[in-house]
Design a protein around this nucleic acid. Structure first.
Lengths: 336, 336
DNA sequence: ATACCATCTGTAACCGGTTACAGATAGTTA
DNA sequence: TAACTATCTGTAACCGGTTACAGATGGTAT
């Protein structure tokens, strides 16, 4: 039952031709006699032969592998992006190598070396935790590289992002339209461009409606649920707490809701909460979460496709795709 | 800034030795002068040289890549398993190639060929949708292969699974202990061993407590939320509906809860619902879901580690790891 | 008949590593 | 001093493909 490792030479020998001819058939080159071709195809079919990728790569300098670097697999945000990337890659006949950072500096460096110009044809990078790793990547940019939602640092990079500022503006304006004036804000990790943009959107919306920005209503979070919980607790301590809160992502919004409920208040009757991302958790939360949707699947797919085009030299100059956010109204906000 | 592709020959030339010596240093072989070694290491460090994996593989016959085949990325069950696999693989210095089935027969076959004995050193397989694909895999088993939660077919395979029958028994007995006697059951995809086992556990628990098994209370589902919704609707049509329902997984349980709430009844006051899996959704559902926990992370990690051991020839004879399930009590079940 | 071209096939070099083998050197032992 | 051994290094073959090049064949235009 155990299959002997079968090579192109075996096929050639069985058919009685040279391996060059077999290779031509495999790659659908011109100038192969149709009879010969038929015979070779038959033997290939029969033996179930597949070229060994590392041999192909060695001579071609191509792996047909796209790497995907994500910080973590445990947040729903990453997962949806991964899904988008995976689907797109499968369609293009590439394969997907999945890497997670969150390891030691040591490992991260080793990973970067491995990646940088050997094992994959291209790389999609999702929000690396610390930008030092990113910089190493940038300095050794000899493979196609697309960043997802990482604005700033370097504009000659290929990126896929969303209208974060507009999203922040829309969320805030929606709360204002419901009659809120004291609107809290829980930030994300402020090293990320997206966090800054959302905050900018928030302040601009307030200003547009002539509401003073109260720094005491702006609390730092780090995109985790527990940080949302803590930040909300802090806001609730305020002598005059906000009547609504805009959280920089859904996880923190869910944490904030828990904090509110925990303190005996109700969402949205007492305090309205709006999130950002529209991950699967948003629709499953109780109450279901009004949020700003990022098209995560599309972002993943777009990034993967962009990498593929870069690999195939279809696109070269720096591309910055910006996808639209969208307000999704559910049950976590009420008018005042 | 653009890095020239740098090879072992470049290093050798720069240091003034042969590539064989460089290779020896890279692989930490004996019999290299410590001075020479130092010089070579310095140049390697300085140039940031990394061996090209496909060249290494070609001569070594090893990829250091473990493949992971999952049916889909959109259910939380797969995701947690993937996470477990990914963590384990990262620890072992392997890399993770992610494949999703759910494509055309054509693609699936191509994938199997590619996989079967070329591109990865080992393979972890999570519940392929149709067993035909599985059988092809089995017939060409020349690479280490570990199945997750796929009982039956072939006992000389390496598998990682859980105590599905005991889990089914525990869930059912828990409902009985709450005073329920009319207990509905929503099945999974019955081609899967796990689905059968859970059903067996259900019937055995009923029998152990001298409760007749009512076939009308057993409805087919397919592990999706919507199938749970539909199955529950069917049960609600029954002239004498069950007072509690055991669903073969959490997604269906959440679908069932929606169906119950949609019909104007309450969970758990009117009908109790218990699930299976304990995916992240369970704790986030409303009401939070009582369920049978599968240690998904551990399952993934165990499978990955088993594959690694098979690759390294540490383990050879068929291994069937069975991990324990555990009843997690939350708020979706009430006593009668 | 000659030149030319398209079709078909094989030979051999090449991709970038690993490693068996052999040769060189120096140190140790009989 | 001779023989043996351990250490160190280079040469060349090999892994399994792709492809430039050249040679062979037959058909067509001149």
């Amino acid at each position: 039952m155990k299959m002997k490792k079968i090579t192109i030479d075996d096929i050639a020998r069985q058919v009685g031709v040279s391996k060059a001819t077999v290779s031509r058939v495999i790659n659908n080159k011109k100038y192969v006699d149709s009879e010969t071709k038929k015979k070779i195809m038959a033997v290939i079919e029969e033996t179930g032969f597949t070229p060994q990728t590392s041999a192909v790569k060695l001579s071609m300098g191509k792996t047909d592998v796209i790497g995907l670097l994500v910080p973590s697999l445990s947040n729903p945000y990453s997962l949806t992006v991964i899904q988008g990337v995976a689907e797109q890659i499968a369609q293009c006949n590439y394969e997907l190598m999945l890497y997670t950072t969150g390891l030691s500096e040591e490992n991260q460096k080793k990973f970067l070396q491995k990646i940088s110009h050997k094992n994959v044809d291209g790389l999609v990078v999702l929000l690396p935790r610390d930008s030092s790793a990113l910089e190493v990547l940038l300095s050794s940019t000899d493979i196609p590289l697309v960043l997802i939602d990482h604005r700033g640092i370097d504009t000659h990079l290929h990126t896929v992002s969303v209208t974060n500022e507009k999203g922040g503006f829309d969320a805030t304006e929606y709360l204002i339209s419901l009659g809120h004036e004291r609107i809290g804000f829980i930030t994300g990790v402020m090293e990320f461009g997206c966090s800054k943009d959302r905050l900018d959107g928030y302040t601009k919306a307030l200003e547009a409606h002539h509401i003073d920005v109260d720094q005491e209503l702006i609390v730092n979070g780090d995109f985790t649920e527990s940080s949302g919980f803590n930040a909300m607790c802090a806001l609730l301590q305020h002598p005059k707490p906000p009547t609504s809160v805009f959280c920089s992502n859904d996880d923190m919004a869910i944490g904030a809701i828990r904090a509110i409920q925990h303190s005996g208040l109700r969402v949205p009757e007492d305090i309205s909460v709006i999130g950002f991302d529209d991950t699967v958790r948003a629709s499953m939360a109780y109450p279901s979460l009004t949020t700003i949707k990022q098209p995560l699947l599309t972002m993943g797919a777009t990034a993967a496709n962009l990498v593929r085009r870069l690999i195939d030299k279809e696109a070269v100059e720096p591309t910055n795709v910006v996808l639209n956010t969208e307000l999704i109204i559910r049950n976590s906000c009420a008018s005042r």
